[in-house]
Design a binder for these strands. Structure first.
Lengths: 110, 110
DNA sequence: ATAACATATGAGCAAATGAACATATGATAA
DNA sequence: TTATCATATGTTCATTTGCTCATATGTTAT
């Protein structure tokens, strides 16, 4: 046999691991948080719901770029939106967003 | 003026936003969680510290690929390591890893 | 010293990603 | 209806990312 033996350990660890699809879903969620533009959008929405063009102005980015990112955030169920005439307001979907970001902040501020 | 006015809102939201470097650091942290290989490695380390070749075997990946990812995880201070002879054991750096992943799990299981 | 094992690292490449641009859709007002 | 504003979407392109391969480093035993 090549290398030393891990059979027992691997068996134990493996039995505790969630299915691949779950772990894939988890990493996809974190990947959404893993971009500074999207983090900024989420942080902005902590304060209040905002329309697309306001976010674009705030971040000094094009309306298109923001719209694309909002689509991702919405797909990840991190934000929701409501239409009011021509304007579409985006808001945080739930409190998980806040608690996930809070945990991240705790880690980096050490 | 082009488009409707957001001056007041933008001022308020902006005053609550952390500095760009902080938000960049935050997104970089989440980006580390945003890959299924790294999530699997972290999850494995929940059970026990493990050497590089054991992780590689567990995930059916090359030693090199795992080593590269461990370097990232270490740089993000999510894991630490200790050497014992030829073998290097990696372990979770602190409890933040667990709580961040827990929060993520809560969000996707709905 | 040399051999064998465990890990780390640099280069190269295919795939994924984020933004810009152009354009399409939706909604309101004239 | 047409014009205008707000948003959405498709395409393109440069950058980044994750893996493989080859090779280097580190450690122990002979």
């Amino acid at each position: 046999m090549k290398g030393h033996d891990h059979t027992k350990l691997l068996y134990d660890v493996n039995s505790q691991m969630p299915k691949d699809e779950v772990l894939a879903g988890l990493s996809e969620l974190f990947a959404v948080f893993g971009d500074s533009t999207r983090i900024k959008i989420l942080w902005a929405l902590f304060e209040s719901e905002m329309c697309v063009c306001a976010i674009a102005e705030l971040l000094h980015m094009t309306q298109s770029a923001i719209s694309h990112q909002l689509k991702l955030l919405k797909h990840a169920k991190l934000v929701g939106c409501r239409r009011e005439g021509k304007t579409v307001y985006y808001y945080l979907a739930d409190d998980h967003v806040r608690s996930i970001i809070d945990q991240g902040m705790e880690h980096i501020s050490e």
